[in-house]
Structures are given as structure tokens and as C-alpha cells.
């Protein structure tokens, strides 16, 4: 399959052209956010406080990297994706309010996230879990960091990346959900598996 290359800021039109199963390489800006950063971002929203960075039209990366400080420069050592489903409850509100165009994680997300992506015109993509050095290789610079008080893993890291991927589009803006389809497929094979195990 031919891979698609995109650069942030990603327009709504470009994001809507992405289809489930597409392979994607992304260049530009990613910002990491996990459980605690999502919670805090929504708390800021309720309190009317601005976020340290804008997520609009860039990529939100479910990741808690290993980052090392060399002199005054931060360097990303390892930066694979974290399990996206932990963010499922807060992601729809995050997407609607902060408008990230691409979400990168692993393991899949649910129907509420898919609905929010359909509304704003965005996609959820997965990067190979654990392939953290491959991911770090695509990171060209750490542009900025905020909320370091949450710890290295939970902070917001603004990363400049080149050809970050291969990403697989797992939820597209039409609501097609790769993980949901695969889960249904696996479920349909269950009786055959049971039978082979004489259950």
C-alpha cells in the first residue's frame, strides 16, 4: 500500500481524505499528552485558563517519552505510544475543544472518540507499540515542554518530527474503526478456537 505523507498543520480536508487502513508518515509538530495532561487540560478549560500550547491542526500523541537533558537541550531517547483506551473517557471533550487533527496512540479507541473525530474531521492512527527507538529516530527536536510537574511521562512535550511512522489509520473521519472491526472478527472466530481446544 502506498503511504501518504502529511505535514502539520493538517487541514480538515486532508484529514477527511484519510481512510481506515491507510499508511501514513507525518512531519511537523506532535504534542504528547497522557491521562494526567488530559485531565488538567479539561480542568483548565473549565476554569477558563489557556493551555500552554495550541493543539489545533497538529497531532496529539499518546506517549510518555524518556527524555534526557544534555546541557540546556532536551533529547528524546525513546518515545513509543501508550495505550489510548485509558484516555477514552476524556478524549471526545479534548478533541471538540482543542481540535487536534490527528491522534496517535496504540490499541484503538471507542465510538465516542470516533464520533468526535467525525464532527471535527480528524483521524486516529496507531504506531507500533514498543517501537520507541524507531519513534525517537523520527523526532528531530524537542521544541518545548510544559507541565513537567506531572513527571516526565505525563508532561506535554512538543516534538518536531520528520516522517513519523509508519502509522496506520485506525479511525477515519467517516467513523470506520479498525480495532472495532478486528475485535468483531476475533469474536466470530472464538467458537472455532474453543472447539479446537475441546471446550
Amino acid at each position: 500500500m502506498a503511504a501518504i505523507r502529511l505535514r502539520t498543520p493538517v487541514s480538515e480536508a486532508d484529514a477527511r481524505r484519510l481512510s481506515m487502513n491507510d499508511h501514513l508518515f507525518l512531519s511537523g509538530v506532535l504534542i504528547t499528552a497522557r491521562d494526567m495532561a488530559h485531565q488538567r487540560a479539561l480542568q483548565y478549560l473549565r476554569e477558563g485558563k489557556p493551555l500552554p500550547f495550541s493543539f489545533e491542526n497538529i497531532a496529539l500523541f499518546h506517549c510518555g517519552p524518556i527524555v534526557e537533558k544534555k546541557g540546556s537541550e532536551w533529547r528524546v531517547v525513546a518515545a513509543g505510544p501508550t495505550t489510548s483506551s485509558r484516555m477514552e473517557l476524556v478524549e471526545p471533550a479534548f478533541i471538540r475543544n482543542f481540535q487536534p487533527r490527528i491522534i496517535i496512540g496504540k490499541g484503538g479507541m471507542g465510538p465516542e472518540t470516533a464520533q468526535a473525530l467525525r464532527e471535527i474531521g480528524g483521524a486516529y492512527c496507531v504506531f507500533t507499540g514498543g517501537a520507541a527507538v524507531l519513534a525517537a529516530k523520527a523526532v528531530k527536536a524537542v521544541r518545548d515542554v510544559a507541565w513537567l510537574d506531572l513527571g516526565m511521562a505525563e508532561a506535554l512535550w512538543m516534538l518536531e518530527v520528520k516522517d513519523f511512522g509508519p502509522l496506520v489509520v485506525a479511525i477515519d473521519s467517516e467513523g470506520n474503526n479498525l480495532h472495532a472491526r478486528l475485535a468483531a472478527l476475533v469474536e466470530s472466530r472464538k467458537s472455532k478456537v474453543y472447539k479446537a481446544l475441546r471446550l
Binding site: M1, N21, H23, C63, G64, P65, I66, V77, A78, A79, G80, T82, T128, G130, A131, A132, V133, L134, A136, K137, P166, V168
Partner: peptide
């Protein structure tokens, strides 16, 4: 499966790269 192969290729590339650079295979140590 094409997607399965893509994932395994990334995993194998990552293992080699981690060893060459002497850095952790996965950020979740």
C-alpha cells in the same frame, strides 16, 4: 497479513536500533 508484517518489521527494526544506540527498546521501562 500485510499489517501484521508491517508491525513485525517495525518491531525488528526497533530492536536492532536500540541495541546499536545502546538505549532502551521501549520508553516504558
Amino acid at each position: 497479513e500485510e499489517d501484521g508484517r508491517l508491525q513485525l518489521k517495525a518491531i525488528l527494526d526497533n530492536i536492532k536500533l536500540a541495541e546499536r544506540l545502546g538505549v532502551p527498546i521501549c520508553q516504558d521501562t
